[in-house]
Nucleic acid binder design. Sequence first.
DNA 1: GACTAGCACTCGACTGCCGTGAGTGCCAAT
DNA 2: ATTGGCACTCACGGCAGTCGAGTGCTAGTC
Lengths: 339, 339
Amino acid sequence: MLEDRRLAVLRAIVEDYVSTGEPVGSKALVERHSLGVSSATIRNDMAALEEEGYIAQPHTSAGRVPTDMGYRAFVDRLSGVKPLSSAERRAISDFLAGAVDLDDVMSRSVRLLAQLTRQVALVQYPSLVQATVRHIEIVSLSETRLLLVLIADTGRVEQRVIELPAPITEEVLGQVRTRLLSAVTGERCSDLAPALDRVAEEFAGDIQPQLVVIIATLLEIAVAREEQRIVLGGTANLARYRDSFAANLEPVLEALEEQVVLLRLLGEVSGGDGVTVRIGHENPVENLYGTSLVGSGYGRDETIVAGLGVVGPTHMDYPASMTAVRSVAQYLSRILSET
Amino acid sequence: MLEDRRLAVLRAIVEDYVSTGEPVGSKALVERHSLGVSSATIRNDMAALEEEGYIAQPHTSAGRVPTDMGYRAFVDRLSGVKPLSSAERRAISDFLAGAVDLDDVMSRSVRLLAQLTRQVALVQYPSLVQATVRHIEIVSLSETRLLLVLIADTGRVEQRVIELPAPITEEVLGQVRTRLLSAVTGERCSDLAPALDRVAEEFAGDIQPQLVVIIATLLEIAVAREEQRIVLGGTANLARYRDSFAANLEPVLEALEEQVVLLRLLGEVSGGDGVTVRIGHENPVENLYGTSLVGSGYGRDETIVAGLGVVGPTHMDYPASMTAVRSVAQYLSRILSET
DNA sequence: GACTAGCACTCGACTGCCGTGAGTGCCAAT
DNA sequence: ATTGGCACTCACGGCAGTCGAGTGCTAGTC
C-alpha cells in the first residue's frame, strides 16, 4: 500500500522531470497527477525516497530530481511499455523497406532510430562471426600489390589492399585463388583458420611468404575486423536540450567519436535479447556519466549478431526510447533474416 | 599610407578577437600591437572601418567585432601564410604513413585534420570520374540475386546487391561476366556507358531484361555514386567554444549530418587548386551562416578528384586552418599518386 | 496509524539601483 | 594627419529587497 504509492510518486517525478526539465515539487505533483492525497503526504514520501537515494534536491528549497538510482528503479519496475502508434509502425517498415544493400540498411536504420527517439542513434554492422563466406576475390593491382575482398552471406563486403614481400605471377595467383576459394566458400567466418592452414601446407616453399601474408590478411578481415563498424546518427539531437546538459557536450561528442568506446557500449548490450538500459554512472566510460544508453541486440535467424541503441541525457523518455529500440531491432532482424 | 594602417588595424582586430573571443577596443589594440600611433587615431580608423562594413559593435560602448566582410578582407589581403612547425610536418607524415587501405587513409586524414586545426574536419572520398576500372566482380547470391562489385584503380571498392527480374543460370552469368570484364577493364569510370551498351547489344533477347538491370547498376555505382561519401571527424571541437557560438550547435550539427549538404560544401571547393575559404553567409546553407569553411581540393597525378576541409566558427584561426588544410591536401595527394 | 492542514523557514530567482570602467565620438590643438 | 582631452554611453558586477516555490515539522483529524 504505502510502498505502492511511493513508487507511484517516483514514477510521477521521473515523468514530470523528463517532460519539463525542471525540478518537481510536491504541489505541482498533486496538481498534475491524480494521486488522491495531499501535497503534505507527498512530501513525506519524497523525504523517504530521498533518504533511500532515489531522488535528490539540487539545493534546499528546490524541487526533487531523480538520481541515477531513481531512473534505474523507474525502468526496472515502473515503466509500462508504450505501444507504437500505427503511424510509427508504418514509418519503420516504409523506411527500411527500400534499402538496396547492407550499407543502405544500416544508414537507414540509424536515421530512423534517431528520428523516432530524437536521440543519438547507434547501429553496429552485423558481425561476421555467425556469417559464412560466400565468395572471396583476389585482384592483383600490381606485381606486389593485391586487393583481397571477402563477401559474407550477410551481404557484407570486406576488403583490404596488401603489399607482398615478393612478386607473384598471375598464373600462380590463379591457382591460389581457386584453391582458396574452394577451401573457404561456405565456411563460417570464425572458423577459417584450419581450412586456410591446410591450403598453406599444400603449396610449395617458393610462394610461401606471399601466401602467409594473404592468409593472415584473410583471417584478419574475417575475424579481427568483425563488427568493428558502428554508424552514428542524430548527433544534433544532443544540442536540442536547453538545460545544463547541452552546456557541455564536449565530453559526450568526444566519446561518441571513438569507435572503441562505441564498441564497448554496444558490446555489452548485444548479448541478451531484451532491451538493455545503462544509466548515467553505469556506463563504462566517464565521459558518458551524464548520459544513458538504451540498447538491444539484433540478429539473424535467432542469433544475435550485433547491437544497436540510442544515447541521450539521463533525463530522457525511457519508455519511448525502449519501444523504439526494440521495434527497430525486430524489424532489422527480420530484414536480415530475409536476405 | 592611411590605407595601409587601416588594414593593419583590421588585421589586429581579427587576430585579437579570434584569440580572446571578446570585442576589442582601441586602447587594448595599441597596447597589444605596436602600431606606433595613439588610441585616438585608431578610433578614427575604426570608425571608418565600421562605416565601410568591415567591423561592427555588438552595442554602443563596446569594442568592435569583425563582420563576415571583415574576415573576408582578412583572408584575402592580410593573412600571411603561417609555416608548419617541423613537429606538425612529422605528425602529418607519420599519421598518414601507416595506412593500410583507402578507408584507412580517409579516416586517418580526417582525424589528423581535426587534431591539427581543432575544428570539424571533412574528407571526401576520391571521385571515380578520373579513375579507371581495375576489375569488376559478379557474384550470384541466389537465383535472382546478384552482388556487383566494382574496383577502381584508386583502390576504392563499390558494391551493390541487385534483384533480377528473372533467374539467370550460372553458365550464362559466366559468359556475361567474362564479356563485361573485358569490355570494362581499364576504361574510365565516367565513360563506361558506350562500352556497356555494346555488350548489351551482343547478347540475345532472352536475358536482355536481366542484363539491363546489371548494366544500369554498374553505371550507377560507377558514375552516380561517385564521390558521395564524406567522412567527418572532430565534431567535439564545436563544443569547445564557450561563447554564443556553442549556445546553439543544433543547426550546425544538423547540417553536418546531411551528406547532401556536405557534398554541396565540398563540391564547390574542390574545383580550384588553392585553398578556398567560405565565410559565414557565403555558405550555401542557412544552418551554416555562423560558420566558415576552409577547404581545398586534392588529387592524384595533378587531377583534382575530391575535396577536404574544416568547418568552424567564423571567428576561427584562418591562417592556421588554411595551412593545415593545404598541407594535408598535399600529403594526401602524394599518397594517392603513389598507389 | 495514516493522512492532512497549517505554519515557519530556506533560498534561488528576479528586480531595481548604483558605481565602475571600458569604450566611443568629437573637438580643439599641434 | 595626428593627438590629447573631455563628455557621454552603457554593459557589468555587487548589493539589498521582494517574491514565491518548496521544504520540514508539528499538531490535529479520521
